[in-house]
Design a protein around this nucleic acid. Structure first.
Lengths: 342, 342
DNA sequence: CTGAAAGCGCTTACAG
DNA sequence: CTGAAAGCGCTTACAG
């Protein structure tokens, strides 16, 4: 059912002028008298004209769309984060006259190395991949002959630029805060082989320990998930630390529940910090001290980089790092105060 | 930066044939010998050919995109639900050769009645609105000259078809279950003027009361949010029911926390049920008995209806209702058993 | 300031 | 079975 749509020709016909002039007027280009331009715009509005971007797109060899790909696997963990980042990306793109197509990469497609159809149909001028994908899929992605960008993760050796949150430094700061509060027995909770994020958060923790000459105790690296990312039951260490540094809020909350069942109160008997500042941070009892990613900056950096690549065919920007900040809540007890009031 | 892209002409040139034949072959149309077709497909693959859908789109006067609009306001409550429904919509659309553009309608744009740019640029052949929007915006939406569909809500009087979950019947079934379990003192938690969903869930509750000749007690309709949808502190009724029927899991969980603080155990002293089966249902302690929406059916119905509208210009389908199902968990105590063991 | 011509990459209807 | 021609709706480069 092809609808009779108003085109520039219709406007031109009505006004007895050419489509060229209509095009110029509607795009605010030089070469139309102000008076005619006004009349054209008015007529366009009156007739309910809407630009057919597909026509312009074809002329330019551009789609004016950016594909945002979120792997389904990660979508299940932290919907809020991905949806919000997407929203910020979309709104930034609007300023460039771009729309965004959200494609959720199913586990099956990731396994089978199926590239999204928007690529095969030239529906996107660039692709932003939001959330870690498997190495094999990364290779497939590199076959795509359009600009691409990794967001919120990176892969060593991959020839794809990425924008990441500063997991390393964020975690480092959070642990340094704990140490300033008098904690010196700090466990890390997370599978340090599961994702680059967890790994970096662990290394930030480790850096802070090193700086304060606190030895790293392997018994205090507690696995929270298997290599597939499926969360497992946490095992409390035999010797307890004064604080647990969890790689994410969800696990921090699970840990607190577990501690409660063992009769250990948080933060009275033991402090716990998370990471992400997602729903689990506020749903947890007590609410979590954690690190928040600046989603707006993350999205802003991604869009800016992508637009450069598209318009100027700009070369590699490498790894861009976006800072986070600590959100102080109720899951940490200050041991320095505690001692002074003893 | 216009990339040199492979076109049908390039393939035709290489093979010494016409683009018409290439087009026919690639689209599996009649009129090309099997042998030539195979050679064309092979060459296309070899040359890394990707269809330029924009060209076909222009010919057809179609964009092969459907816009999915989610109001930001609702996005903040239940990200998981919207993202998952979107995913199902997107994957259903793929089967029709369609992509989906997710547009999050900001509160400001909704207030200012700004229609999404994808409409003004003819980037979408149809629009699915997922989540309740304000009446004024509904009127704006009706100005759009492309097929539109409301998903997960409806508005009396609006000339727009909608697909909704059966809030009425789902709630009715859930309450009937509670009554079967011996409960006869049932409170409803939710602002029955806030959304059509809450209202329908309330009415399902009421229907079940009516059927069982249980009088409706106004003191047992407990407000959970203001008219803007902002959750407020719950006030427990002076006379306690044996079960609370909450309009959503989030509020059910908040209620349970509140009850705990008052020393009332769930479900031992009091039962609580939710609705939605979202993250709050499993994060709650105990986990909630609730109603789950069949998101796949919801999305499937939406896409089917939309495709009909686009291809056949089909008329109104009115209100389509999609069933949910009860998920039984640990927040309900059977009073019949309790009595029999007394 | 205004417009005729050509072209973006496909597909459709028709002719051979 | 194969292809020349026309057209989708816009924009660009050029001419007047």
């Amino acid at each position: 059912m092809k609808k009779e749509q108003v085109t520039m020709r219709d406007i031109a016909g009505r006004l007895g002028i050419s489509t060229v002039t209509v095009s110029k007027a509607l795009n605010d280009k030089e070469g139309v008298s102000e008076e005619l331009k006004a009349r054209i715009k008015e007529t366009a509005k009156e007739m309910g004209y809407r630009l057919n971007l597909a026509a312009r797109a074809m002329k330019d060899g551009l789609s004016y769309n950016i594909g945002v790909i979120i792997p389904e696997q990660f979508t299940n963990v932290n919907h809020a984060f991905y949806l919000r980042v997407y929203q910020h990306i979309a709104s930034r793109l609007e300023a460039y006259g771009y729309s965004s197509i959200l494609h959720i990469l199913t586990i099956e497609d990731e396994e089978a190395l199926n590239l999204p159809r928007i690529y095969y149909e030239k529906k996107a001028d660039g692709i932003i991949i939001l959330g870690q994908i498997k190495p094999a899929y990364i290779e497939a992605v590199q076959q795509m002959t359009i600009p691409k960008l990794f967001l919120d993760f990176y892969q060593e050796g991959a020839q794809v630029d990425s924008i990441v949150t500063d997991n390393f430094y964020g975690s480092y700061e959070l642990v340094s805060y704990l140490i300033r509060e008098g904690h010196r027995q700090l466990a890390f909770v997370g599978n340090i082989h599961a994702t680059s994020s967890i790994q970096d958060r662990f290394l930030g923790y480790y850096k802070s320990l090193l700086e304060h000459r606190i030895p790293l105790d392997p018994d205090w690296i507690i696995k929270d998930r298997d290599e597939q990312g499926i969360l497992i039951d946490l095992e409390l260490p035999t010797r307890m630390p004064t604080a647990f540094v969890c790689n994410c809020d969800q696990v921090a909350r699970a840990l607190i529940e577990k501690l409660k069942k063992e009769g250990i109160q948080v933060p009275a008997d033991c402090s716990v910090v998370g990471y992400d500042n997602d729903i689990f941070a506020t749903v947890s009892e007590p609410q979590l001290t954690t690190v928040e990613v600046d989603m707006e900056m993350l999205a802003g950096a991604a869009v800016k980089t992508m637009m450069k690549k598209i318009s100027r065919g700009e070369a590699s920007t490498g790894r861009t790092v976006v800072q986070g900040r600590i959100i102080y809540r109720d899951s940490v007890k200050s041991l320095t105060q505690a001692q002074s009031t003893d």
